[in-house]
Design a protein around this nucleic acid. Structure first.
Length: 982
DNA sequence: CGCTCCTAACC
DNA sequence: AGGTTAGGAGCGA
């Protein structure tokens, strides 16, 4: 080893576990030997070898070794008997793969290094030190933080999976300290997976900050008494020895005696024949092909190696299939007969409930459809039954980007099928296979276009009802493939219309199935894993996907049979038919369009925010007299109320100091400088972190952002928006509003924003029938000023803004089901004073109190409340014996009809909008909904008529079902960006 | 990595 | 104080 040489050290043990978890667990050789981890390991190693042969990258290794852990007991156990004591044994099917993996390394002609009593990390440390001493460079292939302490001049860590190289700066960025201090940081933080204790209550952030301040661990422990935060100081004193022990545990030994000298790690040109012989023996066909191509060896001429394995290899688990003789349920058995006897909606509901209770599921009966003829035959059954449950499987969870992997169909209970369309090799290398070999591997699939043309006439057939669960998702996917699914029913929305409050547990299919069918379907997690072990559905075994996906269609169809009749029986058919179902295609179109965002504006704002943030951090540290993380409420609370001893400390539920805006602003109002700076810092951090930094990640190639609306996640009928949430884009502060300027109209168009003015107060005035409020709205007065005038007997002319502000807070409080506690908190006044305001309000507007009492009584009697359009919100806990729980439910029940009626009104407007625009010959496109606001993209030359039409549709949305006794006023404006249009 | 807590953005 | 979604800190497996 000499200057200019480059040593690659592969952390083999970590590699094994990554390979094992990255791949499907069931990969086996034809003789039943589990080889998933071997396969993953070889793929990763080959990729690394290939990369390191690529001269364009510039780090060509001259030396190379793969290092493994050898035994579980090391010198560290002598220091601390609990070291790695909580490690669990490796998975059963991984154990026989260890010797094979060592064999693989030898097949690659690479040194395979391990040593009794030492961890791989220590060997890596020793080779690294020697290589650096000899003037060479080192790349450690690992992402283990335990190895970061080795990073330094000439030494980097390479995370192959993420293709990231970590030098000192990257370590600093990741952990807040340079590599030299990593050991001290680890000693403080500890490591639960290795059972290194560290110091309680100290996480990476705090540790980095302490080390920054005190220099190193020893200095910190010696001066621990100076630390201001009591708990932290005590912990550092009490656990000082534990920290020192932890340090010894995490410090790598770079003096390990080596059996193989550094110079012996010299890298040879791989022996193609040896490697291919091994790969063929393991039946890694794809990798064999790739290696053969790269090394210019003819794979067919190489003989398969005989692999001697020094360990027991488990045979395949071939349990005989269960033969319980359960017949698949069909529409004919039981259900049909019962339905024919149902003379009333209630009887039908009961019959279907009984049918569901008796349902059994037979996964083996589900079909996998792999050719066009079978697909057409199955679809023909739908023509007979008139109903088709369908569900799409895609490779990401977003309907906008997901690629179609398969479609499942059901035509009657138990009669379901899965149509694979975009499956790939379970080994994840399908892109390198030709179509024919993919077919050899996973079986035939109908070409996507063929399947789509076969399904299109059925999915669009007016005589066949398509049933889905969250159909917005599936219709959006199909819309992207040129199919407009109609007519349809949606079991999620039926469930939501029946009882929206279940949205807490969710209207997801799995929950509905358990609730209404008493059946727990195969979960997506069961099929594809989760977290680190998650893999795309497209590379799951097709037979298993059939069980999962066909079951989904089957469950959906059965749920529909149970739930649909309940709509009529419970008087909720019109809510579902008029407020839920028609909104589905409207939202699908809005999501698909997306809104244009100017990346440059966001990036400029990010820069500006970062600058201000930096300056504020300096001031904050200065005012606090120490460095701390202003983003940690825990640390902040200790500084404000502990160290500085400021008054007005409130505690949160869990006993921590509360530091929310309210608290900080109250402190700032008393002239304290630090809280004011924190408020400012928090605001900037929020704007930057949640908006200007993040929104660009959601932009598509055309510069548009597509949110996803949820129709079933609120208890009141409102929509919600996520990924990203475009219903909480800042508007309150000037800096926040700047973010809205990034939402723009493309060339030749304008954005129109139209919002309802005071819609909830208007609804309250109508429902509670308050003469003064209704009169004020009819006359177009300032409603809050009028309220203040009414309450305090003051003229509206020349009113003190503070008085109006109070009245406004009360008006909002009323909508929220007011409490003296809440109003006092909102206005920062004593609770007694707030109570007096409320009393006065009720004296002047007695109808409000009546409305509240009647609503509570109704909710207690029925368990739910209703909007003006018949939507129900359920409050089963409204009679709870716990007073605060009861009061909470009462307030929610008072609010729900108001908020829910507003939600219904804008839904009606949205449902009518596209038709109204089309009829008027206007090209405007609805893009966003923000509860009481709609945003459109409008051709420049159609702005005027569009403003008029949009306002009219919105204002008349309650008609003809409800004729409000107050006018609905809509403010609409056009501009080049959302900020200016709002 | 997943969960809870706290905070903050919106209507 | 009614209805949401999202991000960071801290903790524990």
């Amino acid at each position: 080893m000499k200057k200019g040489d480059h040593l690659f050290l592969v952390d083999g043990s970590a590699y094994i576990f990554r390979a094992y978890h990255a791949l499907p667990p069931l990969t086996r050789k034809s003789d039943g030997l589990p080889v998933g981890a071997v396969s993953g390991f070889c793929n990763m190693l080959w990729k690394l070898v290939e990369e390191s042969r690529d001269t364009s990258v510039g780090t060509i290794p001259t030396h190379f070794a793969v290092i493994f852990d050898h035994s579980s007991t090391t010198f560290r156990n002598a220091l601390y008997d609990q070291y790695k004591a909580n490690r669990t044994a490796p998975p059963e099917d991984l154990v026989p793969q260890f010797p094979l993996i060592r064999e693989a390394v030898r097949a690659f002609d690479l040194p395979c290094i391990e040593k009794q009593g030492f961890e791989a990390d220590d060997l890596i440390a020793t080779y690294t030190r020697q290589a650096v001493a000899a003037g060479g460079d080192v790349t450690i292939v690992s992402s283990d933080k335990d190895l970061m302490q080795l990073v330094g001049p000439g030494v980097i860590l390479y995370d192959q999976m993420k293709d990231k190289r970590l030098g000192p700066e990257e370590v600093k960025e990741k952990f807040g300290v340079y590599p030299e201090k990593m050991i001290d940081l680890q000693a403080l933080v500890g490591d639960t997976s290795d059972n290194v204790p560290g110091v309680p209550g100290i996480g990476p952030k705090t540790a980095a900050q302490l080390l920054d301040e005190y220099g190193d661990l020893e200095a910190l422990l010696e001066r621990a008494g100076e630390i201001k935060q009591a708990k932290r100081r005590e912990n550092l004193i009490q656990f000082a020895e534990q920290a020192r022990l932890s340090k010894r545990l995490v410090t790598l030994d770079c003096e390990t005696p080596l059996d193989v000298a550094l110079d012996e790690l010299f890298l040879n040109e791989p022996d193609g024949e040896k490697l291919i012989a091994f790969l063929k023996a393991m039946e890694f066909t794809t990798l064999t092909r790739r290696v053969a191509a790269t090394l210019a060896v003819s794979a067919s001429e190489v003989e398969t190696a005989t692999i001697a394995v020094d360990g027991p290899a488990r045979g395949p688990d071939l349990d005989p299939p269960a033969a319980d003789g359960a017949a698949p349920l069909t529409a004919a058995n039981g259900a049909g007969g019962a339905a024919r006897l149902a003379l009333t909606p209630a009887m039908l509901v009961e019959a279907r409930r009984a049918e569901a209770a008796a349902a059994t599921f037979d996964h083996a009966a589900y079909l996998t459809i792999r050719d066009e003829a079978a697909l057409k035959a199955f679809l023909a059954e739908a023509t007979e039954t008139g109903i088709l449950a369908f569900d799409t499987e895609t490779d990401t969870l977003s309907a906008m980007n997901g690629r179609l992997v398969g479609v499942s169909l059901a035509v009657a209970p138990g009669r379901a099928a899965y149509v694979p369309l975009g499956h790939v090799s379970p080994n994840g290398e399908a892109d390198l296979l030709s179509d024919t070999s993919l077919e050899d591997e996973i079986g035939p699939q109908i070409p996507l276009e063929t399947a789509l043309s076969a399904m299109k006439p059925v999915l669009e057939d007016e005589a066949i009802l398509k049933v889905g669960q969250n159909t917005k998702y599936d219709t959006l996917v199909m819309l992207r493939h040129g199919i407009a699914v109609a007519p349809f029913d949606d079991t999620m929305l039926i469930s939501y219309a029946l009882d929206a409050s279940a949205s807490l547990a969710g209207h997801g299919m799995d929950e509905l199935s358990e609730r209404f069918l008493g059946h727990k379907p195969i979960s997506f997690k069961d099929l594809c894993g989760s977290g680190r072990n998650a893999r795309p559905i497209a590379s799951c075994e097709i037979e298993r996907v059939t069980h999962y996906a066909a079951e989904d269609a089957d469950v959906t169809l059965r749920l529909w049979r149970v739930l649909k009749p309940r709509l009529a029986a419970e008087g909720l058919a019109s809510v579902y038919e008029r407020l839920e179902k028609p909104l589905v295609p409207v939202l699908a179109r809005m999501e698909r369009r997306g809104i244009m965002v100017d990346r440059q504006i966001l990036s400029r704002l990010s820069g500006r925010f970062a600058q201000k943030q930096g300056a504020l951090e300096a001031e904050i540290a200065d005012l606090a007299g120490e460095e701390f993380n202003p983003g940690s409420p825990k640390q902040l609370g200790e500084i404000l109320f502990g160290k500085l001893g400021l008054p007005g400390g409130k505690k949160t539920k869990s006993g921590q100091w509360s530091t929310d805006v309210k608290v900080l602003e109250d402190l700032a109002a008393e002239g304290h400088a630090l809280p004011a700076k924190i408020v400012e810092w928090r605001q900037l951090t929020k704007l930057k972190g949640t908006y200007t930094d993040t929104l660009p990640n959601h932009m598509d190639e055309r510069g548009r952002i597509h949110t996803s609306y949820s129709m079933a996640s609120t208890t009141t009928g409102r929509l919600s928006s996520s990924e990203p949430n475009l219903q909480n884009i800042p508007v309150r502060t000037e800096e926040g509003r700047a973010i809205r300027t990034a939402f723009v109209a493309p060339e030749g168009t304008r954005l129109v924003s139209a919002d309802y003015s005071q819609i909830e107060l208007r609804i309250l005035a109508h429902i509670a029938d308050i003469p003064q409020l209704k009169q004020a709205f009819r006359e177009g007065l300032d409603i809050h000023a009028m309220t203040a005038s009414e309450m305090f007997g003051l003229p509206v002319e020349g009113m003190d803004p503070m008085v109006r502000r109070r009245a406004k807070a009360i008006n909002f409080g009323i909508i929220y089901g007011i409490s003296a506690f809440g109003l006092a908190n909102q206005l920062s006044i004593p609770r007694e004073e707030a109570g007096l305001y409320i009393k006065r309000y009720f004296e002047r507007f007695p109808g409000i109190r009546d409305y509240m009492d009647e609503t509570k009584a109704f909710a207690k009697k029925h368990g739910y409340v209703e909007t003006l359009f018949g939507r129900r919100a359920h409050y089963p806990d409204i009679s709870a014996s716990n007073p605060s729980m009861r009061a909470f439910n009462e307030r929610a029940a008072i609010n729900a009809p108001i908020q829910g009626t507003a939600a219904d009104i804008i839904r009606r407007a949205m449902i009518r909008m596209d038709d109204a625009l089309a009829k008027a010959g206007l090209a405007a496109r609805m893009l966003l909904q923000v509860h009481d606001e709609l945003v459109f993209e409008v051709p420049e030359d159609e702005v005027e008529p569009t403003l008029l039409l949009v306002s009219e549709v919105m204002a008349e949305a309650p008609l003809p079902r409800v004729d409000l006794s107050v006018p609905l006023v809509v403010d609409a404006k056009a501009a080049g960006n959302w900020e200016a249009a709002h």
